[in-house]
Design a protein around this nucleic acid. Structure first.
Lengths: 348, 348
DNA sequence: AGCGAAATTGACAGCGCTGCCATTCGCAAC
DNA sequence: GTTGCGAATGGCAGCGCTGTCAATTTCGCT
């Protein structure tokens, strides 16, 4: 029943070539004639041959596998779960289609010793490459640990790389500017922004995009309309209270992430402010929650899956001897217009 | 800098024994003298030796790794992301502490050919064991494919296993009954229930638990108070509309999952019904959304992480030659009381 | 036709470990 | 002393593949 799995030797003898040639075909190496390739592939198909990962790893000194390193969500709250699942999906898609495997490595950057632990696991499994997700991709503890292992890696960041390595990023700044212009085009002139944790690069760029957007729309930047949270729902609530108690309150609030935007919506509900009739709210990230709450949240969808795919693919190509050029690969985000934004109220 | 990783030979020569003896110590085999064991372990420590997984897998004909199979969330919607992350966390915890690895395998059970594809990957990586998560754990396509590979597996289910294999479950029925009694204890006498997709076992047990709870509280089961959704938010909204337009509407709605409960809350908001003053709402699953919406949802938290941990640990123990006894291992869930439930309104 | 370079293919030695079997050691019984 | 016998240890062949390098074929040109 479960007959012995075919080995490379079986394929070689069926195809009438050496095992090395089979290996070449399997690994898509250059300099194999079309005729030979075809013969070998036919043999592979009829024997249902699949290379034994352990054997190839042992012989080639590195596992054909990509490690995805991301911040452990259980450490703070579960809302980032969707973020992670999306990345995993993209990375997995790249790996599976190329015959690689995916090892996930959540890690809590707050814990001491993360660096050492990460290094340890990397050294043990010898992956072909490492994808480091934001916000870890901007943290020296993590990045240095990865670098120390001397393994190829790609950071999933949010722009402003210095261009000396291949890096995948999204256009946070531009798309945030676009969201701001969209709000302005709806007639809003008092557009507030809730900033996030200043240490997170991505969120910083979003704020800069907000400034850009205001300028492009010919709107002044008002200090009192910029609040600072820490990306949590709770801080979103606090900022919302502060903003909405202003003498001349905003008619639109743009938040650096969806969690804080959800906080804004909670506060508005509590204060009896109707969204979007009296107040428009926009977020960033398009977490699952965004389309579940009432009203559904207008937000910026990050192309996480596509980013993780690009990063993994680059690493796999690199392992195959075709490294990607250094530089920033931009995967654009998209604005998702939903129920929480509408034209500014008539009176002011 | 990146000095060569120590191999078993290095350890052997440092300890002054043969590599085979080192192997024995590493794998905790019998018949090694205490003195030798100690010598070897010291050598292992000073050299920071870690066995090369590929080499041991190649030589021993199976990978030291657990596969976690779960339903692909991107296939329907992202709200189950938290569910998956929790399971991954538990499985990862077990694997890491035992020197195993975790391979994740999302799969869309609706797609044709999933079974074959799953078998294919399993046969390729030769894992030590497979954890099959709900709802896949009740689907013959998946379970048969897993069985066909002849690899040890554990199903994460929701009870009612026939006891001929080791299985990890949660006490859905009992805890749902408890939630129902809790609602009754708050003074509610018209408690509605929104059932889920009848094919999902877990959700069925929750309904049975609801019936139990009513009976235990001395409340009658009213047909018109039981609606049937399909676990989506949309269906939750439909059921809520139907339920709330009844002549004698319920004062509490208990939903078989959080998504539908979120739908109920949306409808209540839209209809101007105040939660929890006029209507109490409870869900199941404790998805991330539950604590983000306003009002925060009272729900049942599933011990996913603990379940996945137990399943993975059982598999690892099995691979080490200590299989767990057949039978149901129950990991209890817990009720999370939040803002969406309160005493029943005074008038009726 | 003839020659060198490039393209294509093959031979073979490991990669680091475990399984199997042989060997040696320690020690109780004669 | 020996013998006997389990306990402790070692030797070594592979597991299935890739890297290196050598051998062979093909092809472009003169």
């Amino acid at each position: 029943m479960t007959k012995h799995r075919a080995t490379i030797e079986d394929v070689a003898s069926l195809a009438g070539v050496s095992i090395k040639t089979v290996s070449r075909v399997v690994n898509r190496e250059a300099n194999v004639s079309a005729a030979t390739t075809e013969k070998v592939e036919k043999a592979i198909t009829t024997l249902e041959y699949r290379p034994n990962p352990s054997a190839r790893n042992l012989a080639s000194h590195h596992a054909h596998l990509i490690v995805l390193v991301y911040d452990d969500p259980s450490a703070y709250d579960a809302s980032s779960a969707g973020y992670i699942i999306n990345m995993q999906e993209g990375a997995l898609r790249a790996c599976r289609s190329e015959g690689f495997e995916l090892l996930i490595h959540p890690c809590n950057h707050r814990e001491k010793g993360v660096g050492a632990e990460l290094q340890e696991q990397i050294r043990q499994v010898r992956p072909s490459g490492i994808v480091v997700a934001a916000p870890l991709s901007n943290m020296p503890v993590i990045v240095d640990a990865v670098k120390a292992t001397n393994t190829p890696y790609v950071r999933l960041s949010t722009g402003t790389g210095n261009g000396d390595e291949y890096e995948v990023a999204t256009n946070d700044r531009e798309i945030s500017a676009e969201m701001t212009r969209y709000l302005a085009s709806l007639g809003h002139t008092r557009i507030a922004f809730i900033k996030g944790d200043p240490t997170a690069r991505a969120v910083g760029n979003r704020y800069v995009g907000y400034e850009d957007g205001l300028e492009q729309s010919g709107l002044p930047l008002a200090k009192e309309l910029v609040a600072e949270g820490d990306l949590s729902i709770g801080s979103g609530e606090k900022c919302a209270e502060q903003l909405l108690q202003l003498e001349n309150p905003p008619t639109a609030i743009f938040s650096a992430n969806d969690d804080m935007a959800a906080g804004v919506i909670r506060v508005a509900n509590r204060m009896g402010i109707s969204i979007p009739r009296e107040l428009s709210v926009a977020g960033c990230d398009d977490i699952a929650l965004a389309q579940m709450i009432f009203p559904a949240l207008t937000t910026i969808r990050q192309p996480l899956s596509a980013m993780a795919y690009a990063a993994s693919k680059a690493l796999i190509d690199g392992a195959r001897g075709h490294p990607h050029e250094p530089g920033l690969e931009i995967v654009p985000g998209a604005i998702k217009k939903r129920e929480s934004t509408a034209a500014a109220p008539k009176n002011a």
